[in-house]
């Protein structure tokens, strides 16, 4: 066994199938998409690709729909991080401290995650329908709050926010599970000794649990960012990017450009730009969190020094 571990050829041989799949189905399409973003093609077999240089990118820079899609996705990322993660980890903490019925609540909270996105989108679409046909408006009317009734998915002030919050509702469960798993891996002795030392629940969460599950929080942030940047299904099911492009995100705009309007070059350019944005945001967020890591590590070392001097 030991000799297998040292034999690089064997290691490479074992890695090869996964590597091939990754290259063929991930790397090559990404490079192809990058290549196609410099061309235009009407979608007819036999018609050659026409080289257009940076025209597709220039068209996007001047396209108000694309600007709105980018603004929407950045808002989506921001609100996604500010809601999915805190809500997920908050419920994880609640479940961690729940002595009775933990399994039951875990299952209940996980239900939105089990539902297909299409079903979730349709469900909320019915809830948010305008006028009395929508459950929410109906409820508001019955509570005497008619002035709050609106066309939730057509009103420019509420449409995008509704989609973001529905996505939070559907995704937070995932972070409950990640959070709970991370918390369960914290040795009981540490929490018990903190309790003996007089730390209350709040202090235990902030000073012990959060630092000890920091790696999970980091992974969750990256997952939210990458997940939200490529969001398509929820937006498509709920609004298809409408009305009038109000709720477009890059993925739905890409779909419209490439598959509805036959602008394959522009579609490829959107995917290239999104790839770059995803890469930058992910690297920046990881850098920021790694800095936090280093700071806390330095503080910890500083703390130890002081303790030793004393």
């Amino acid at each position: 066994m030991e000799q297998y571990h040292r034999n690089k050829k064997i290691i490479f041989l074992f890695l090869l199938p996964a590597l091939l799949v990754y290259i063929i189905f991930e790397c090559i399409p990404v490079l192809q998409s990058f290549y196609f973003s410099f061309f235009e093609w009407p979608g007819i077999q036999g018609v050659p690709l026409a080289y257009v240089g940076l025209d597709n990118f220039k068209a996007l820079i001047n396209d108000a729909q694309f600007h709105r899609a980018i603004a929407n996705i950045l808002l989506f990322v921001l609100i996604g991080i500010l809601t999915q993660l805190p809500i997920g980890f908050f419920f994880a903490i609640l479940l961690y401290y729940t002595k009775h019925g933990q399994k039951f609540f875990k299952a209940v909270y996980f239900i939105p995650m089990i539902l297909p996105v299409t079903a979730t989108g349709l469900l909320w679409q019915f809830i948010l329908k305008p006028n009395e046909t929508g459950v929410l408006n109906n409820l508001l009317s019955k509570l005497g709050l008619e002035n709050l009734c609106t066309g939730w998915l057509v009103n420019s002030k509420t449409a995008m926010m509704c989609i973001i919050l529905v996505t939070t509702w559907a995704s937070a469960a995932y972070y409950i599970v990640i959070g709970l798993a991370a918390m369960n891996s914290i040795p009981d002795e540490i929490l018990e000794s903190a309790t003996i030392d007089g730390a209350n629940t709040w202090k235990r969460v902030i000073h012990i649990m959060v630092p000890m599950i920091w790696e999970s929080i980091k992974i969750s942030v990256v997952m939210i960012i990458t997940g939200v940047l490529k969001v398509f299904d929820m937006v498509f099911v709920m609004t298809e990017g409408g009305p009038n492009g109000l709720t477009h995100v890059p993925a739905t705009l890409l779909y419209s450009q490439a598959f509805k309007y036959n602008h394959y070059g522009i579609g490829s350019a959107i995917s290239t730009i999104m790839f770059m944005i995803s890469l930058v945001i992910t690297i920046v967020s990881l850098k920021i969190m790694n800095k936090e890591d280093k700071k806390s590590a330095t503080k910890e070392r500083g703390g130890r020094k002081v303790w030793r001097q004393v």
Partner: peptide, 11 residues
């Protein structure tokens, strides 16, 4: 009607 922009053909 109000909010007709959010109503579909089947409705």
């Amino acid at each position: 009607e109000e909010n007709f922009e959010g109503i579909d053909w089947s409705t």
